[in-house]
Amino acid sequence: MNDAEEKTSKPFDPLEPLRAMRDAYLDAMAKTMVEAVNSEAYAQATGAMLEGYLTASAPMRETLDKSMIQALQQLSLPSRQEVAALAERFTNVEMRLDDMDAKLDALREFMHPNGSASKSDASQRADAPATPVTKPGPGTTASANRSKARRRFVRRGAGPPKR
């Protein structure tokens, strides 16, 4: 086989002859399954299965939880509930700090109505240096910059498969 033939020849795919048949089968199967999952019977069956599993596993989960709490106590380690309570307290502290930050911002704005809300915020502000994708020329306007970016995106096409 010469180079030209090699380039144009299709790669070997063992599923190729079966593809049309496969697609037709999958389409039919998809329609049937969508109808099935939309039925009351499916909702009832999955609900019953889930309930059954959770009810059956509950005693084991409870036993495991109790023995784990005892083991952690023996090792002088905090339980899951205790760590969770601690995390909740941390979140509360974070919220109080955020409240204070907001009050400080309000105070600053009251004192300097035309100034920035906060010093730290000001450094992140809209006037922070930008990283231009394209160098704006002498006559470049804002809208020209923006439409250039739009065109660039529309040109790149192909995307991921549908979910």
Binding site: T91, E94, Q124, A126, A130, T131, P132, N145, A149
Partner: peptide
């Protein structure tokens, strides 16, 4: 490119690094 500007518990607020000069951006 983005910058973390605020966080509370698991929530995080990011600001994307602007690529258009400030004067050309939407306010």
């Amino acid at each position: 490119s983005k910058e973390l500007v605020w966080a509370l518990n698991k929530a995080k607020l990011y600001r994307y690094t602007p690529v258009v000069p400030a004067k050309d951006r939407y306010p």
